[in-house]
Design a protein around this nucleic acid. Structure first.
Lengths: 253, 253
DNA sequence: CAGTTTGGTTTACGCCGTTAACGGTAAACG
DNA sequence: CGTTTACCGTTAACGGCGTAAACCAAACTG
């Protein structure tokens, strides 16, 4: 009975619940197209704004909290969609996940900006650490790792990497389930970073609207980028199949 | 005497001057690390905030005005740096310009976000048109066009392009000195968009700090992306020379 | 039961964008 | 030339924001 993981004490459970409500109310606010403000969140919860300071230190922390949870929720969404392909087919899963990521970014530009375009200052180690545990990052890295397990695509050996980059992949501050990637194979993370920056470029460009709307509508910028990188990660022989999957996802909803 | 281009009438000149002051004061504000607000701008100009409404319709328009001018100024900066190579060497100029663009984005993340990450809604045709005349976009497209003049790198024929994309490159809403690019060669604009999205991805990732600081410091993400795309635009035979140029620029200041 | 911690309140401050009403002064006009 | 008008600034005010301080009741703790 009551094997629940929540640390028992009534107060702690109550507090946890309030955190959840903060996040969900904030998310609802964004979904409704309203501005995210402490006062608005508090208002919808039937509280006054200063009360929120019992839960977050300031506005930026509220943003970070919401961003983190939205990222988690969004990733779960893509992951669920990707599961229409079996775990043994990570290439297909990756394709679906990326396409869903893009569609999500187009449908929810405000949420996207919050999570992926929120400036993080160099010094701010605290907020930077949040990146490390970013759900979406971990999920995509993991998928890439699984793909490698099948295609064994080439990646730079550690000695080939720029020394600073080598450091970075050996002790990643970047989101990665790096625990199970042996040190000698960390060059894969470099491929990840490069591919991610490309995907990120397309999606950000499209999501922020800094792009011809017709090009966005066509989905071709995303499609071409994906196909290029699917090649890099050893999936050229499945080009037909995977581009069909991409097209399916792009056509949907 | 007085062959000046300014439309003469004293009032108009005065007004123009005020616009210039608004922009320069706003730019100074950003450079000083302060927040950009109507009140702050007005304050520094020795005016009250409502007075600014004689010049801009609202805050967003102030932002757009400033963004446009900052883009112009920044582009002039890169262009000036690129001129250490002759006009006959557009490949070198392009390399320098891109490197400078990145360095600028890293040094002035707030300005970068203002210009390149400011969300533009689908419907907002007015603000969208500003993109069309974006100085930086025009400059880079022009350089790419000049490179093509030398390398004649392959680009998709119009029939190969997705119909919607074909429309977009024939009647570009995208920044492009497309006037002097003949219709049959507009496939080059597709290469431009693709290359730009890649460059944009790296630079945005780095400028917003959504990236391992060590990787940023190394400059390798940018470098690798550049080299890839220099290959695509027919500069593989100059790889050595151009990467040396890139490294020089990355090492500077 | 007494004492303390927790989670909320009210009030207040100083910003912000924006509107409205008003005034002086320079340009435009008959 | 004198008169009108348009422009460019002001002040005052509204509502909303993040945030700090003082306070208070209920819930936990010994």
């Amino acid at each position: 009975m009551g094997l629940v993981r929540t640390p028992a004490t009534r107060r702690e459970r109550q507090r946890e619940a309030t955190y959840d409500e903060i996040v969900s109310v904030a998310a609802q606010l964004l979904a409704d197209g309203e501005d995210l403000s402490l006062r608005a969140v508090a208002g919808r919860m039937g509280m006054t704004a200063p009360a929120l300071y019992r839960y977050v230190a300031n506005y930026q922390q509220l943003i970070d909290l919401v961003a983190f949870e939205l990222d988690k929720a969004a990733t779960a969404e893509w992951a669920a969609a990707a599961e229409r392909f079996p775990a043994e087919d990570p290439a297909a899963r990756l394709s679906v996940a990326c396409a869903r990521f893009r569609q999500w970014a187009l449908a929810r530009p405000r949420e996207f900006a919050l999570i992926f375009a929120n400036p993080i200052a160099e010094e701010d180690t605290e907020r930077r650490e949040l990146l490390t545990v970013s759900t979406s990052g971990r999920y995509l890295t993991d998928l890439l790792w699984q793909v490698w397990g099948q295609t064994k695509f080439p990646y730079p050996r550690l000695e080939e990497l720029h020394p600073t980059v080598r450091e970075a992949v050996l002790d990643p501050l970047i989101p990665a389930e790096s625990g199970h990637i042996p040190a000698e194979e960390r060059g894969i993370l470099w491929i990840y970073m490069r591919a991610w920056s490309a995907l990120y470029g397309v999606v950000t460009l499209e999501s922020t609207g800094h792009c011809d709307p017709r090009v966005i509508a066509s989905g071709q910028l995303f499609r071409s980028t994906m196909l290029d990188w699917l090649g890099v990660i050893g999936l050229d022989d499945q080009r037909e199949r995977l581009s069909a999957i991409l097209d399916e996802e792009l056509a949907a909803d």
